[in-house]
């Protein structure tokens, strides 16, 4: 029994952890280039989750018998597109005009934006919990048993999709011209500009990609749990902790941090206490900040003068 409980919790932890990782990537990408914590990122995740819900509801209305897989792919793509647009809009309207302002102004703007997004969604869809259509969630709750451990399709799907997108992002950043331009801009925006890389475009694309990944996390979240206008705050906070744990600015760090945080939370909830589950993440944040502020995989931060 002991071993099975452990295996089940590890599986649950990796599932939620892969969602944290997807959101954490957005934080870390933006931070790598602008040294800005994009507070509105959690809300982009939430909007992406609702966009996915909207598409699935629309599919149910127009073509009630549509196949599960095409409908899910459509929802995923639409949510990614919506979130990418939102991310670019946020960057263009709120962050770009303030790029030369004191950091406090940027932080306050970011906070203001996340409050605006949250409340717009609340006014649009109301405060109650919403669930993705039963047809999708029920089909995904099935699965198979390995001994006493139940592996649900949705857990496999979440892990698979998340890992696929993380792989694609890593490939893009390491191997493509665009990725090279992003790394150059993160290293030194002025020099990169002298080499003909347009920093504004790279920043906009970074926001778009980070937001699209958050939307993937949002749709996966919606398939696993019910959603409301408030999910962005908690998920954003956890994902940020994951990014710090892994080392903010480091892409592999975000993935490792996300999975690790998911595991710690699931094991903590299973073996210590479910009520205090959320405290574990914060304790980890405090410990990392005190003993290793650069995170597990991050480079030590050297303040540039």
């Amino acid at each position: 029994m002991e071993g099975e409980l452990l295996a089940q919790q590890v599986l649950n932890g990796l599932t939620i952890g892969s969602m944290y990782a997807l959101i954490a990537l957005g934080y870390t990408m933006v931070y790598g280039i602008l040294q800005l914590i994009n507070f509105a990122h959690g809300e982009v995740f939430m909007v992406g989750s609702f966009a996915g819900l909207g598409v699935l509801l629309l599919v149910e209305r127009i073509a009630p018998g549509a196949g599960l897989v095409p409908a899910l792919i459509l929802a995923l793509l639409a949510a990614m597109a919506a979130a990418a647009l939102l991310g670019m809009l946020v960057e263009r309207l709120a962050y770009r005009p303030l790029r030369h302002s004191p950091r406090l102004s940027l932080l306050i703007t970011a906070l203001g934006l996340s409050i605006i997004l949250q409340n717009l969604v609340m006014l649009l869809v109301g405060t109650e919990d919403r669930a993705y259509p039963d047809r999708f969630t029920e089909a995904l709750q099935e699965g198979f048993d390995v001994g006493a451990v139940h592996v649900a399709w949705q857990q496999l799907l979440t892990l698979g999709v998340a890992l696929a997108f993380m792989g694609a992002l890593t490939w893009m950043v390491r191997r493509t011209r665009l990725g090279k331009a992003m790394r150059a801009t993160a290293e030194d925006p002025i020099t990169a500009g002298l080499m003909g890389i347009e920093a504004d475009r790279i920043v906009a694309l970074t926001f778009a990609m980070g937001s699209a990944l958050a939307a993937v996390g949002g749709v996966l979240f919606g398939l696993n749990y019910s959603i409301n206008f408030f999910i962005g705050t908690q998920a954003g906070l956890k994902a940020f902790i994951a990014a710090v744990l892994g080392g903010i600015g480091s892409l592999p760090g975000a993935v490792v941090g996300g999975l690790l945080l998911g595991l710690i939370e699931a094991l903590g909830a299973g073996y210590v206490s479910g009520t205090w589950k959320d405290v574990f993440a914060f304790v980890i944040l405090a410990v990392v900040l005190v003993f290793r502020p650069a995170g597990l995989l991050g480079r030590p931060v050297v303040e540039k003068v």
Partner: peptide, 10 residues
């Protein structure tokens, strides 16, 4: 409040 924050900062 959110709108006020963003507009004031801008």
């Amino acid at each position: 409040y959110g709108t006020a924050m963003v507009l004031m900062m801008a």
